[in-house]
Design a protein around this nucleic acid. Structure first.
Lengths: 264, 264
DNA sequence: CGAATAGTGTCTTTTAGACACTATAAG
DNA sequence: CTTATAGTGTCTAAAAGACACTATTCG
């Protein structure tokens, strides 16, 4: 908290008028990724109001005056998906003049990662599981929320939903640019950050599960031997990850060792 | 440019009132680095008005309604230093609620790199060269502008100016946090981006000059043989940099080969 | 000559990539 | 017995680190 150093300064602050200049609006938007059936998916919400009515956009909204931008991102994600406790990672701010036809809007963009298991857990019904839906909170602008598979085609990105297929131009505002930036950054980050762990369903996991996450994010297979060696050097040798002693048969007939990450 | 798809939507946009909600202000701030006498320097401007009067801050200011955030950053840098054509690189947005005591301000932070030669070139007088001053344009908030050497001490960062020495708490707002983030990112980026080239004085340079830039940014020496090898593999073999054929004796008695980067 | 950078050769270590092979348990 | 993952050993290639050595030119 800032303390004025002189009476003069206290007076200045007391009479300062923040309304002198016209201001842009600021939003926090969250690109929520998840992995379903070994394919990258992103959450999109169908816009029920103008502009870009019927187009699809990331969860997000205006930054309130009493919350930080980071808090706004977490709040919007939570409000529009019902999910809580998902960390968000800021990756860029998009400030072109005409990106919103209503008015000047500057968007601070975040990415976040959802373990697939949390998808069905809270939706609570079979339909939701089948269709990769999540319960969007009803609101002015949120008519429907779905996870779309991201597929890279020769004409650009396509978004394969449970009921429909979108092209790049079906995204609202400049969200296709935001998504492309997020994807590039995620692919670059995945090898030397702990993002991959955020996709895992359980705190106990097998090396195979982690490998599948990395392969899905990067879009190409990893060599099994090398992946295990790097895992051993980077996490086991340093003590960041320990073997639990339990065995898992989720992915294979042969029981696999499970591991757990220590201290976040 | 966005085109409404229906008359209804055109009406909506026409009557949309952007003034409904209170909005934060948005600034673009630029951390301008340069290298003088083999030491990292950063440009700080002394604040002439409240709040943080007498403290030092990065060049920056409010984003106008008719310019993008990137343009605002470039404009502020140009206005407050007289320098033009310096590319700016966005690296983070700082949106804590209380970072400015006047009002809610969200700051989009950029970093930029100034070749040392441009410092003296435009200042035009000996005093400026001696003191690492640059001509700050007179304004409400800009009383004085200086480059400070960044020195890492046990108590944190110190800023060694031509006439004075600052501590972390002499920086205004949360600018010390912004600077630390910029430094960390720059150190991480320097090996695999072309940032190092931006510090070079001339389009023709020697390997030694490039090595000194990298050493200064990272704060530790590079092995000469390995640096030359990496340079050869990364830039010469790929054709990104070519040998000019000219020789330089700027740094050594023995003439050194000079190189030039192709296509930006 | 000493000082300071220019430039090359080479040995070693580390890391990454590739591939062969055996193990386990369900169907 | 087939299949899919579990897990190890090892050969090779590429990259990084370390160090020795010679070259050039000014003062």
């Amino acid at each position: 908290m800032y303390t004025p150093k002189t009476v003069e300064e206290a007076e200045f602050l007391k009479h300062y008028d923040p309304g002198k200049f016209e201001k842009p609006s600021v939003t926090a938007d969250v690109v929520l990724f998840t992995i379903l059936r070994s394919a990258m998916h992103v959450l999109l919400i169908r816009r029920g109001g103008f502009p870009y009515k019927g187009c699809w956009a990331f969860p997000g909204g205006f930054v309130g005056m009493e919350e930080s931008v980071d808090e706004a991102a977490a709040r919007e994600l939570s409000e529009e998906t019902g999910l809580s406790g998902i960390p968000v990672h800021q990756f860029g701010t998009f400030g072109a003049v005409d990106r919103d036809p209503r008015m000047r809007v500057i968007s601070v963009a975040y990415m976040a990662f959802l373990p697939a298991a949390r998808l069905s857990a809270f939706a609570g019904n079979q339909e939701a599981q089948d269709r990769d839906l999540i319960s969007a909170v009803a609101g002015d602008d949120a008519a429907d929320a779905q996870f779309f598979e991201i597929r890279e085609t020769v004409e650009g990105l396509a978004f394969i939903g449970p009921r429909n297929v979108l092209k790049e131009e079906d995204l609202a505002f400049d969200h296709i640019e935001i998504l492309k930036r997020a994807l590039t950054m995620l692919k670059n980050r995945i090898d030397y950050t702990d993002d991959a762990f955020s996709f895992l369903n359980d705190q106990d996991f097998t090396i195979y599960e982690l490998q599948k996450v990395v392969e899905t994010v990067k879009g190409r297979p990893e060599n099994l031997t090398n992946f295990r060696r790097i895992f051993a050097n980077k996490y086991l040798k340093t003590g960041l990850v320990v073997e639990t002693g339990e065995k898992s048969t989720r992915d294979s007939r042969k029981p696999a060792a499970t591991y757990r990450r220590l201290r976040s």
